[in-house]
Design a protein around this nucleic acid. Structure first.
Lengths: 134, 134, 134, 134
DNA sequence: GTGGTCTAGACCACG
DNA sequence: GTGGTCTAGACCACA
């Protein structure tokens, strides 16, 4: 299964689903046009309520990651259009990176070490496991 | 004031204080040995409940960013020792970077663009404003 | 083709057909007395289920936009007679305009700008493309 | 009460709440800075589930109509910033007006009558009851 | 006390 | 069968 969920984690379950689907798309495990499991099927697979999955799907649709075709199911979009909230998301992304640098400082990482971690995270996001320890 | 807080932001106020102090230390605005305002003074200055500041200080102490010396006040620590929760925080940091890469993908950023954003965020974290647009 | 349908749009397909036919009549592309394609032909042409087209035709007949003559086909009516649900539809129309004004307010449009948009929409409904940007 | 809801109406209850709040703001019954009822209070006042109100509030926050201040409640925003999805909403608004023109045609309204209805709807949206019948 | 999340189970519109 | 909505009732984090 390309998706797992931890109900005890601090981040909401629906958010974990959103992140998981985005990750699967970014890694290429889900290609544009691919069909996602139905809300209810995914719900039983993850052992969560179908409302939780539905909320995640709605959020993903708002972000233009998936697309609902009425009565037929939900599909990964072709990445044609830029999402409407792109500017806000860019700002959040910038801030996340800033906070990451700050945390790296407090963990005593050198710039070189942190850059290495950064690139390894990129490999991980692409679905290629990092081959070396940290 | 080297610290500001926005009660309307989605991130909890106590977390904003934690992030703000860490940022100030990483940027060099607060040096090891510097004394922080008392919980109550900072609460007044930020116009928040003192419980909120106390919670932030506790978290900062757990992360070994500050140190409470009874009867003397709270001070910025030297970042020499590795904090007890280092492993966990490293894992979180790695995950944050992974999620950032994924978000960059969905925002249509090229690797080069994203790396540039990454390094600019590093400059920002060090307190140096980035001189070029994005 | 004077009718197109987008299964990914949020508005139901049968409603899109209803709107499309009404638009074609209002714009003059379909004149009173003109014959519409059969349910099955239109279903094939639009690549939708014939039940969907049938539902649309029923709604159009209830609104007195089209007329089914048994054994002959379905035809565009003369807009002479007032449909039986006129009162209800007037109320809906009034409400749609009210909601439009509210939305205009929240989008920061001035009254003048919104009136201009209103008249441009009228031109568009008549099938004349608006010649100036917005 | 400045808000009512009809559970038997075809439009979802949460949407009715969204529309109602937007209407109240546009009419000036709710001014920027005003506090909205708590999710649970409004829920009992409208005799709906609190989840339904919560969904409406979240939608309103996404549209930048209201703002949540942590632990203190939700407030009508000052209309400073343009919502991130303004372009899409403009497009929808334009389309709503186009459909309104089409419906007016099929109801046999003259342009003058429809324009009059349009302006009366504007008055209604501003909270001034229209003084003449239609 | 505030909003946010989640479950279990129901009903509905659409295709 | 698909997603969407709603209820009743629970628990949690935050201020």
């Amino acid at each position: 299964m390309w998706l797992q969920v931890d109900p005890r984690a601090p981040t909401p379950v629906y958010q974990q689903i959103v992140d998981g689907v985005k990750a699967a798309v970014a890694a290429g495990w889900l290609a544009p046009g691919d069909r996602l499991p139905s809300v209810r099927d995914l719900a039983v697979a993850l052992a969560v309520n179908h409302n939780t999955v539905a909320k995640a799907y709605q959020e993903l649709e708002r972000s233009r990651v998936i697309e609902v075709i009425r009565g037929r199911g939900t599909f990964v979009t072709r990445p044609s259009r830029t999402p409407p909230d792109a500017a806000e998301r860019m700002e959040k992304l910038r801030d996340a990176l800033r906070l990451a640098w700050i945390e790296a400082y407090h963990l005593g990482l050198t710039d070189a070490e942190f850059e290495r971690m950064f690139h390894q995270a990129g490999e991980a996001a692409r679905g290629r496991a990092d081959m070396e320890g940290v």
